[in-house]
Nucleic acid binder design. Structure first.
Lengths: 258, 258
DNA sequence: CGGCCCGACTTGACCGGACAAAAATGCCGG
DNA sequence: CCGGCATTTTTGTCCGGTCAAGTCGGGCCG
């Protein structure tokens, strides 16, 4: 039953024979964009969506999975599907502008900027969805701005996530899914290694290797930060055969660095 | 800072009554890691895997989807499923080391290093899978090192992908899936904008905005590169309502930059 | 009135089947 | 020998159903 006009508007059958669930996902995205459901609202149940689009539940679920991977909605078993973000073209321009502006700051001060942005986003989202800033929903928009995703593991993602690890921790975003992916892909458990270079007394440019535990080497990717108190931080992702939590370690001075 | 439980609350996923397809995916991953199938080999067909694990084809497909998202295998309709990478702990250490070494180079020379690495990886993979360097499979390992994934869109990913856009183009990796995600999420078509700053005559630090077409503004994220001939490139991702291909545009001089 | 339990509702996982689409394969005639 | 065509193989999509697991709210009982 071709009820929805959105389903009928597939333009070129021969050029774009899109799968059904992609059509459903696109139609849902369009409705999200049109403001049918505001941020924080709940989508119709999967059964209702089946009736709406005249497809089976499997197709609806596949479409919802695509939307969830895109970061548009969030599904919770037993509860329902909620709208995470209103992804409009204006929002895209705003996001790009924000990130472009962020890149203009020196590397050392970006974390400070991000922290300030977090509270702005909290207030903005609170006003948008009409609840107090202390509510759990307030964090949605802030999290969206620096979302740690269940992305396929690529090292650039890993690196950039390590770069903002501290800010992400402040925002309440946990790197669990990423670690799960590392575990599945490499068969090891990765750990977040945090080093207070200022406390170690070793200048960052002279520190190369650190030991998390005696006899347990841990590789690290050098990333240096400077907080407001002039303390230098080095946060990295490394390979370490231990459960996931933040490690603190002291630096080891090395003689030479090519 | 807010401290809090931090990563501790993430540990509630310790007791896991894992879904079946995750068990299948883990078992397949383990066999991949054990070297049952070498890089470039083809996995058993889905029907055979159904018989092997005594599950339905849907479960096998879900497991293969997980593996594909993790970058371990590649599926092609009509052909089969092939092994992309042997993801061992040693490989993880090697990858981390590679990226850490890459980060030690100045930003301007990283692309040159990546290009050199590409040919090394080509030769290495060719020897590993036993085929000529001209074969298509040679690119597999190189692609894996800087894989453009169909990741949920996060702007850090987008930024870092833009940073290596030129290298990724050299490696034959096309940013199609990423654009498709941008399109679904924001309802617009994003484009890769390439600017030859040297030809425009405008110094990079004085150039802020560019016009792809008359009257069509395109935001850009500043990323400057220097190739071997001393030419400065600026490659960025922007919002532009046009089909996906690389744009060339001239820079516009701006008076001031904070 | 408050805490607890049970049931309705919703998503998660899985099955067995069916057909479509793309690639590989083999056959055949030039 | 080789190019074109039909067949087979393999993955992609979709259906309708079943059961499990988590969430939420209302009613029961202390």
């Amino acid at each position: 039953m071709s009820t929805g006009p959105g389903l009928d508007m597939n333009k070129r059958e021969q050029a774009d024979p899109r799968p059904r669930y992609r059509q459903v996902a696109d139609e849902l995205t369009a409705q999200l964009r049109a403001g049918v459901w505001p941020v924080g609202a709940m989508l119709p149940t999967e059964t209702e969506l089946c009736a709406t689009f005249a497809v089976s539940r499997h197709t609806v679920r596949e479409a919802l999975r695509l939307l969830e991977e895109s970061g548009l909605v969030q599904r919770r078993q037993g509860s329902g599907t909620t709208v995470l973000a209103l992804a409009t073209p204006d929002r895209f321009v705003q996001d790009i502008t924000d990130m472009a502006e962020l890149l203009q700051y020196p590397q050392e001060t970006r974390l400070t900027v991000l922290r300030a942005r977090k509270f702005e986003a909290d207030a903005e989202t609170a006003a948008q969805i009409g609840c107090g800033e202390g509510e759990a929903w307030v964090r949605v928009e802030a999290i969206r701005r620096l979302r740690v995703t269940t992305a396929p593991l690529c090292f650039t993602t890993l690196l950039i996530r390590a770069e903002y690890a501290e800010a992400l921790d402040d925002l309440g975003v946990l790197p669990g899914p990423l670690y799960a992916l590392i575990e599945r892909r490499y068969g090891i458990q990765a750990s977040l290694i945090e080093v207070d270079i200022a406390a170690s007394g070793v200048p960052p440019h002279q520190a190369e290797l650190l030991e998390v535990e005696p006899g347990t080497p841990a590789l690290l990717i050098r990333r240096r930060y400077l907080d407001g108190q002039g303390r230098v931080y080095e946060i990295s992702e490394g390979a370490h055969p231990a459960p996931r939590f933040n490690y603190r370690a002291t630096l080891k001075r090395i003689p030479e660095l090519p």
